[in-house]
């Protein structure tokens, strides 16, 4: 029987990471739906989800054939690269060194880009709209698929992690359907910062286990790692903010 204390870190990490990605995909699908109607938007989204599901079903079983220690090492390194990349970017955005992501601006840009595409190519409007939605779902969904596999595969938690990601999809769809505009009020950088902390903690944990380290406290070590990455991220952001303020005219 799977205990909540074991599954919780994977479910929470998958939920919040997926929330960030689904919000980004939703902005583009919303632009498509608003400009060309919901039929091409829904068709592109459904096709994109089918491609992602096929990727998971195709590659998932292959992971069972990889020795567990090698799998932990490879996934741990990929999580370190991915998670620390997110944490770095969120820290720089928090410090004001790089601009925050603006869903309203992306919605406007995507709408203008879609209109331009249609004028130049003179192809079927619905086709272009459907492809745009498909691309958004596949490109953002790739990250969700990686995160679900990465936080779930090392401990046989693929199903709970997938449920965390599906819950995020459901939440964005429900809220998006109600407000019917880009979800620009979600504190995306804070979410990204938190997810970067969790994925980096998972990365150190799996990489260490893959190298043969028996962490004291087993899974509870993840909490200590997350606290340390949170402190390091906040410190890095504060130092960069101070530099930024010092360099301002």
């Amino acid at each position: 029987m799977l205990s909540w204390s074991v599954a919780a870190p994977a479910v929470i990490a998958a939920f919040f990471a997926s929330l960030v990605e689904v919000i980004e995909a939703f902005t583009i699908v919303l632009a498509v739906g608003t400009l060309r109607g919901w039929r091409p938007a829904a068709f592109g989204t459904a096709t994109g989800l089918a491609v992602l599901a096929a990727a998971v079903l195709g590659f998932g079983p292959l992971l069972d054939r990889v020795p567990i220690q090698l799998l932990q090492l490879v996934i741990g390194i990929l999580l370190l690269l991915f998670g620390m990349g997110w944490l770095r970017k969120a820290a720089l955005r928090g410090a004001g060194v790089i601009p925050l992501r603006d869903e309203n601006a992306i919605f406007a840009t995507e709408s203008a880009h879609l209109g331009e595409e249609v004028r130049h190519r003179r192809a079927s409007l619905d086709w272009i709209a459907g492809i745009t939605a498909f691309k958004a779902v596949v490109l953002e969904g790739l990250e969700v698929v990686f995160i679900v596999i990465a936080v779930g595969a090392g401990r046989g938690l693929l199903v709970p992690a997938s449920l965390g990601a599906l819950a995020a999809c459901g939440l964005v769809l429900i809220v998006g359907a109600i407000v019917h505009r880009p979800l620009s009020r979600v504190p995306e950088n804070i979410l990204k910062f938190g997810v970067g902390v969790m994925l980096s903690a998972f990365g150190v944990f799996w990489t260490g286990e893959g190298l043969g380290v028996a962490w004291p406290g087993h899974d509870m070590a993840l909490i200590a790692f997350a606290a340390l990455f949170l402190a390091a991220g906040l410190l890095a952001s504060a130092l960069a903010r101070r530099q930024n303020a010092g360099a301002a005219p």
């Binding site: 770095r88 980096s200 380290v213 410190l235 890095a236 960069a240 930024n244």
Partner: peptide, 23 residues
């Protein structure tokens, strides 16, 4: 376990240094 500590400590140091450098 000591190597694990090196891994953790170095990753934290790399993060702080990289953000400072990028800024």
């Amino acid at each position: 376990l000591i190597s694990g500590g090196v891994l953790l400590g170095s990753c934290l140091a790399v993060l702080v240094e990289n953000v400072r450098h990028s800024g």
